[in-house]
């Protein structure tokens, strides 16, 4: 019986359900853990994970129940607003970068990634974007390859570098 001032907290219901679901799934996987062949130990490999899974499930349920209970509207937890489309585009660009990192190579993929993101967020400043997108990976590349001697993937530039 929601009045104007009372409301449920959908964010907490969703979050609680997700945590609860993860907890249940985790418990199921934990219970399938093979028991140690040597039964010398009092606590086998499945005990601790099972306990954690159960506690997670209970915690998730508590959050969801808390969100389900009617409470004054101002106490609601609304997930903070941060642009939906921008978020998905950023995640997609980042995901593509992660996938391209090794096959394309550090330098080219990073230049493309930084240029892509910088152009997406400030399309008019292409000159400064370009300088940034090229100088940042170059400095890091030199630092890692030559100073720290950590080899970075060369990808398409293999043989050139």
């Amino acid at each position: 019986m929601a009045t104007e001032n009372l409301g449920r907290n959908p964010a907490d219901i969703i979050a609680g359900a997700v945590v609860g679901g993860v907890g249940v799934a985790y418990t199921i996987v934990a219970l399938q853990t093979q028991q140690a062949t040597s039964s010398a130990s009092v606590i086998g490999p499945a005990v601790f994970p099972t306990l954690l899974g159960v506690l997670l499930a209970l915690g998730g349920a508590a959050v969801a129940i808390g969100g389900w209970r009617l409470r004054p509207a101002e106490a609601k937890t609304e997930p903070a607003q941060s642009g939906g489309l921008r978020l998905w585009v950023t995640i997609a660009i980042f995901g593509a970068y992660v996938l391209a990192f090794i096959p394309v190579g550090y330098l080219l993929s990073t230049i493309a990634f930084l240029m892509g993101l910088a152009t997406y967020f400030s399309p008019t400043k292409w000159k400064s974007n370009l300088i940034f997108a090229i100088s940042f990976p170059l400095i890091v590349f030199v630092l890692f390859e030559y100073l720290l001697r950590v080899p970075l993937p060369q990808g398409l530039l293999a043989g050139v570098l």
Binding site: V98, L114, F136
Partner: peptide, 8 residues
């Protein structure tokens, strides 16, 4: 963007 590149 630089932070993300560094994390990767």
């Amino acid at each position: 963007a630089g932070v993300l590149a560094f994390v990767a």
